[in-house]
Amino acid sequence: MHKLLLVGPTGSGKTHRLQHLAAAHAADPAATTWAIDPHAELVGADRRTDFDGAAQMLADALALIDERTGRSEEHIPTAAEPRVLILIDDADDLMARHEPTCGQLHRLATTGRRAAVHTALTAQSTTLQAWRLAELRDHYLNPATAEHLPRRHSGDED
Score class of each variant (00 low, 15 high):
R17M: 14
L18V: 08
L18R: 05
L18H: 13
L18G: 07
L18P: 11
L18M: 09
Q19V: 04
H20W: 10
L21C: 09
L21M: 14
L21I: 14
L21E: 13
L21K: 03
A23C: 02
A23F: 11
A24H: 09
A24P: 00
H25R: 13
H25C: 15
H25Y: 11
A26M: 03
A26Q: 11
A27L: 15
A27S: 12
A27D: 10
D28K: 10
P29Y: 11
P29A: 13
A30R: 12
A30T: 12
A30L: 06
A30P: 06
A30M: 09
A31E: 05
T32I: 09
T33W: 03
T33P: 00
T33M: 12
W34P: 00
W34R: 04
W34T: 04
W34H: 04
W34Q: 04
W34K: 01
A35Y: 05
A35E: 07
A35L: 07
I36M: 02
I36Q: 03
D37A: 00
D37K: 00
D37V: 05
D37Y: 04
P38N: 10
P38E: 10
H39L: 10
H39F: 10
A40H: 13
A40E: 13
A40C: 09
E41L: 12
L42I: 15
L42N: 01
L42Y: 02
V43E: 14
V43C: 07
V43S: 13
G44A: 10
A45I: 08
A45P: 01
A45R: 00
A45G: 05
D46R: 02
D46Q: 09
D46L: 06
R48E: 11
R48A: 15
T49P: 05
T49M: 08
T49K: 07
T49Y: 06
T49L: 08
D50S: 10
F51Q: 03
F51A: 08
D52C: 06
D52I: 00
G53A: 08
G53R: 01
G53K: 04
G53N: 03
G53D: 08
A54P: 02
A54D: 07
A54G: 05
A55P: 00
A55I: 01
Q56K: 12
M57C: 03
M57F: 02
M57A: 07
M57R: 01
M57Y: 03
L58M: 15
A59G: 12
A59C: 04
A59H: 13
A59N: 13
